[in-house]
Design a binder for these strands. Structure first.
Lengths: 324, 324
DNA sequence: CTGAAAGCGCTTACAG
DNA sequence: CTGAAAGCGCTTACAG
């Protein structure tokens, strides 16, 4: 039926093994032969059979992407965006990407297990960090190649992670607002969990102190006690939109009465006015880098673990303003 | 290294071929033997090697999900949500899902080609409908099993499609508003392209006529000419949020002055107040059904093509109100 | 109901 | 620089 390496070999007048070597651009094969083989492949419209290649080589040519076991993934544009970026980079490297997602850790682990044990993938990109879970433990215990997007809390030095510098981002948020003349600021969050919150807040706090300004931490679970605060740093875009609506209802206008800066530069940032001043976290590069790192790890399992920091960029829009 | 079917055979005291048959629950194998084989598999923690299975059987045990070649996929929660549902159903059927996505049709087609020619997947789920494109032509021409989520415009009877009844949804929107006493309505859109718009609007229009009410079509590209309209049917949630903000700026309040009903029930619907009255399109079932249909098609390529219609449900929230 | 054998389409030491 | 051969781990007609 389908064209195989044998057909190509016959047409090029060589042995199948030579075709295989030519395909992989083996250095021992003469350029002349390679050329003949290439021609034959083109003539016959040859495609490798991935199953045969996998079986013979032991490599699957695929990677798995692991989504967090949460319900509201679809609410966060981050996931679709990074999946697209990962796929793009993978395709460039002639690698396919499969996905693992589940509502619970157990479901997720079961998928990951199957994918790896059946040798469907050579490694994984994990799209959530923070505290360890069964999935990560399984990967570490099995010495399975993986990279984490985000910053793990424990055993960080045992794995490769790709992330933004959230602490620096928090600091730059404070810095930028200080530059606009704001003296009394607050960091607004709806959670006190997670590395992302901790790092962003820590950066904010330290910077505020070093600048000798006034800063506080506010939770959206309570009504925001704003006494004289003129600028807010909000944990993410979605929360910022909600906070702004809450302020508007209280007769407080953004940015005239109060400036707001947030993080992620997602759709929500330019959905309604005031469009948000927010940090672009460069998801595309997060995706590309994680694939590259993973391919290195797969090629050389003893490659050292490292942290890759992807740059961010402040997008100034309508929600911030200098104090008059 | 890894446990193979041979190891299991030895342990169970049978031939490898018997193990294979037992695994597939072949009817010719005695229950007693199956039991022995199962025990041996469990003892040895056996996992099949998918590459070997693919090569020998010609089936990949994987399906591909094709995303639309658009930039703003990540802005629409639909994609992540259906991907999750697809993966869930696939996993239940011991199938993995790989993805294809590209910024252009060419890139997309190249990915789809590779996936199929290399036999990495047995079929595809296409996440966009409307007019034909090179990808769909390729699938049709190659008689490759696929199902479309959405409603194709051309050659609809040649493919299996899974969708909501958008026309009925448009009609029910009008019906619901009429029930609240609204007499002058408008359908608001930002595009006149695409099946989704056409169907929803057509349903709206016909229902308005049959009820003897007044209805018009408004484009958000122009400022909305609202003379005495008391209710709006808006193409989707995102647009509805923007429309509501525009109205608010003009001093028009939703739902007191004007009611708004939209479609999709995405995150945007309950992001800010007024929370939207909107149609839940049941994405989970769209995903599950499309996988089931695809698996049927793969198992039996001569299975007839059909259209599967998934029910929807109106979620009444804050943006609609009876006329006083 | 089960076994022995051939074959799926590649890769890769081993020779030369 | 290239060929012949064995092998990767399954499946599946063919026998019995």
């Amino acid at each position: 039926m389908a064209v195989t390496i044998k057909d190509v070999a016959r047409r090029a007048g060589v042995n199948p093994s030579t075709v295989s070597r030519a395909i992989h651009n083996h250095s021992a094969i003469s350029e002349k032969t390679k050329e003949r083989v290439r021609k034959a492949m083109a003539d016959l419209d040859y495609s490798r059979n991935s199953a045969a290649q996998m079986l013979a080589s032991g490599k699957s040519g695929a990677i798995g992407v692991i989504f967090p076991p949460i319900e509201n993934k679809s609410e966060q544009p981050f996931f679709m965006k990074i999946l697209t970026a990962i796929n793009e980079e993978a395709h460039q490297n002639k690698i396919t990407v499969s996905i693992a997602s589940g509502h619970t850790i157990e479901e997720l682990l079961s998928q990951v297990r199957v994918m790896y044990q059946e040798k469907r993938v050579d490694g994984f990109i994990v799209l959530y960090a923070g505290e360890a879970d069964d999935v990560r433990d399984y990967l570490l215990a099995g010495e399975i190649p993986f990279v984490i997007v985000g910053t793990p809390i424990e055993r960080a030095n045992e794995m490769t992670a790709v992330d933004n510098d959230n602490k620096l981002m928090g600091a730059e948020a404070a810095q930028y607002l200080a530059g606009l003349g704001h003296k009394k600021l607050a960091f607004v969050t709806n959670t006190d969990k997670g590395e992302v919150f901790h790092e962003r807040y820590r950066g904010f706090e330290e910077k505020i102190k070093s600048l000798g300004l006034n800063g506080q931490l506010l939770y959206t679970s309570e009504s925001l006690a704003l006494d004289n605060v003129t600028a807010l740093v909000v944990l993410d875009d979605i929360l910022a939109i909600k906070v702004i609506q809450g302020l508007t209802e209280r007769g407080i206008t953004v940015p005239d009465d109060i400036s707001v800066i947030s993080f992620n530069n997602s759709v929500f940032a330019s959905l309604i006015h005031p469009y948000l001043t927010t940090f672009d976290i460069n998801i595309t590069q997060l995706g590309h880098s994680s694939v590259q790192k993973l391919l290195h790890l797969i090629a050389d399992p003893d490659d050292f673990r490292e942290k890759v920091t992807v740059p961010f960029e402040l997008k100034v829009r309508e929600s911030t303003k200098a104090v008059n």
